[in-house]
Amino acid sequence: MKIKDIPFRQLLKAAHSRAGLCIDFGMCVVRLRSRENDFLQALALLYQDFQVVEGQFIDFHIDMQRPVNYRRWMQAQIVFSINGAKPFDPFPVSHALPLFEWGLNWCIAKQGHHHLMLHAGAVEKNGKAIIFPALPGSGKSTLSAALALRGWRLLSDEFGLVRAEGGLLQAMPRPIPLKNASIQVIQDFEPSVVLGPLFPKTRKGTVAHCQPSTDSAERCKQLVKPAFVVFPQYQADSQTVLEEVLPHYAFLKLASNAFNYEVMGRTGFERLTDIVNSCICFNLTYSDLDHVIARLDGMVSQ
C-alpha cells in the first residue's frame, strides 16, 4: 500500500512501534522507527508514492531517536542509528529529514557493493537513460529536478547505480535536495512543484526537497540501459553547448568520481568500459533549463 493511502495516524503508530514503518525504495527496504512526528509528516509528503511493506527482507534498520543525555534539556537533538550503531554526531531535531536522507545515502554507499556506484544523477525517457556525473556545484540536482518535472523518470540525483551483473542502471528515486538559489529557480521553472519544508542553516545552506514524481516512484524497480553520459556544468548566461568527449576522458572522470570504483576491482573496470563504449559522452555547458531540456529531449527521441 502506498504511503499516501494510509491515514497519517496509522503511519505514526507504525513508526512508533517496535516493528517500525517499512518502506520499499526499490533497491532496498528500510525499517524506520521514530517518534518525531514533524519529521514523519515531511517524510510522508515527500515519499507519498512509495510502498509500505510487511514481512519482507529489510536491508537497513534505521532509528531516528532523541539521545538520552543531559544535552536534551538544552537543545533538542536527534540521533541516526543503523542496526543499533550510531555512526554520526547528533543533529538538531528540526533537521531530522536532511539527516535521514544523508544517513540513508551513507548506508547505501557503505553496503551497496553489488553495484558500481557512480556519483551521478540519472534520468530516463523512452527507455534511454542519461547519466549526469558531476561534482557538487555543477547544478546536477537542479537539472535532475527540472527534467523530472518535465516528464523524465528520475532514477537518482546522487547515485548512478550500475548493477555489477549485466550493467543496467538501478533506480533509487528519492526527494532531490535543492540548495539555496536553486529552490527559487525550480519554483519559478514549475510553480506546481511539491517541495518539503525549508531547512535553513544546514552544512550546505538552505535546503528544500523536491518530491519525486508518481511515475518515478512506481517504476523504482525497473532497470534501464544507459545511453548517454553527460557531464553538466552550469554557467550563468551561457549558451547550451553539448560537446562530445573522448572515451578515455569520460572513463577517467567517471572512475575518479565514483563511490566504490576501487572496491569493485576488475568488475568496476569492465562495467565502466562497457558504459563508455556503449554510450555517447558529452560535456554540457548550460544556463537555460528549458533550452537544455529541449536538446536532451531531442537526443532520446531519435
Binding site: L246, P247, H248, F251, R266, E270, T273
Partner: peptide, 21 residues
C-alpha cells in the same frame, strides 16, 4: 586488463587493484 582507444588507454592491474591511464 587493457582497454585501448586510439592513442589513449587505461589499464587495470589486478595485483594492486589500481587503474592507470
Amino acid at each position: 586488463s587493457i582497454e585501448i582507444w586510439g592513442e589513449h588507454a587505461v589499464v587495470y592491474n589486478d595485483l594492486s587493484g589500481e587503474t592507470h591511464y
